[in-house]
Simulated scan of single mutants.
Amino acid sequence: MTDIRSVTRYGSRSYRPAWGAFLVVALVQACYGAGFILRSSFVVEGRRYFCLFDDAMISMRYASNWANGQGFVWNAGERVEGYTSFAWTALMGFCHLLPLSPSGMCLLVQLLGIPVLWSCSAATVLLARSCRLMPAVACSAVVLSGTYYNLLFFSLFGMETGLLTALVTWGQARAAHAVRRKEGSTWSVLWLGPALLVRPDVLPLAPPIVACVLLTARRYRRRVLLGLLVAALPVVSHLLWRYEFYGQWLPNTYYLKATGWPIADRIGSGLIQAQWTAGCLGLAALFVAAAATRPKRWYVIPLSCFAVSIATRFISVGTPGLWTASSSRPSRVYWCWPHRVFTGS
């Protein structure tokens, strides 16, 4: 009876404050997003123009050429994969089917970042509920993640950061739910398919999540295997298409950035990145673990993903074309993000 009470202690009604925090954060994100988009635009000869982050603008050119029937190319007839995210570039391609000017297209992509941020916050509530965190901790998680400057900046500047964050957070929530119920679930691994099409960075997260779900499941393990099979279909299809279209199995940026760099320098830069990530996220992970009333086995999923994120940060510098980072300089944390946007300082 003790275990049953501990599992049902925080029911769905207990997380109403977390959903209330989500609504407040969503309103703040909408207002902040409007100010961010306006402040990032510029006026030339009395006309206002909107733009995206440099990587996003590269993806926009690929998307425009694809929408015009030239394929995913930078220049017509030259097949070189230079975009960051296949799925995000494809989404931009569908946006280019609308009769909008280039500036209007950039504005549309920036506006899409606002509902993407909402989905990140909603997925955070689901993850907190799946892990049975205290409602106060769930509210804190929604507020802290929903106001994180780097997530806001890149999502509102046309990058795929928010979409990937939403997919990974939602996937961890479904996996934690499956582990808590001790049964396999197709949805606990199905999200890996679209997430890998957004960024291959998700790959190191797959083994611990799949292992946790399979090892704790007392029934329905075949559902997990079915989910993996379905998730692998679009990934394998994209891999084969890349080789057929570009003639390479990996992105072109991997071959450009991972060659000509001594392995000792890669390891050193990777250690710097790993230490920085551990310092930024370590205290938060320990706080969540300590604030939980009675830690259960399903906490191994978010904590394992945290550990893998440290390892991924280390790997990212060693293979910058395949992973996220290509610089050893730590990212700066902006605590006063509203002041920076609305004052321009």
Rank of each mutant, 00 (worst) to 15 (best):
L281R: 04
S269T: 13
T259L: 11
W276E: 07
C280I: 07
I263K: 13
L281K: 03
C280E: 05
A264I: 07
A284F: 13
V288C: 13
A285C: 15
W276T: 09
F287M: 13
A274P: 01
W276K: 06
A258F: 08
A278I: 07
A264Y: 06
S269A: 15
I272Q: 04
K257Y: 03
A284Q: 04
I267D: 00
Y254L: 15
G279C: 09
G260Q: 06
Q275N: 05
A258R: 12
A284N: 04
S269G: 15
P262Y: 08
T277K: 04
I267G: 06
A278Y: 08
G282Q: 05
W261Q: 11
I267R: 10
I267F: 10
G268Q: 03
A258W: 05
Y255L: 11
I267L: 12
G260P: 14
G270M: 05
A258D: 05
G270A: 10
Y255D: 08
Y255T: 10
L256G: 11
Q275G: 07
G270S: 07
T277P: 05
L271D: 01
L286P: 15
Y254W: 12
R266E: 02
A258G: 14
L271P: 01
I267W: 02
T259Q: 10
L256N: 10
W261A: 10
K257L: 12
G268K: 02
L283Y: 05
R266V: 04
F287Y: 13
A284E: 01
A278N: 06
T259K: 10
Y254C: 10
L256W: 12
L286A: 15
Q273R: 14
T277R: 04
L286Y: 10
W276Y: 14
A278L: 15
D265E: 12
A274Q: 02
L283M: 09
W261H: 11
G268P: 02
F287S: 14
G268L: 03
G279K: 02
D265A: 12
V288S: 06
A278F: 14
R266I: 02
P262I: 06
I272W: 03
Q275E: 05
I263N: 09
G270H: 03
G270N: 03
T259N: 11
C280H: 04
I263F: 15
P262D: 06
W261T: 12
L271C: 05
P262E: 04
C280R: 08
P262T: 08
T259E: 07
T259P: 01
A264T: 14
G260E: 02
F287E: 02
Y254N: 13
A284K: 04
C280L: 09
T277C: 07
D265P: 00
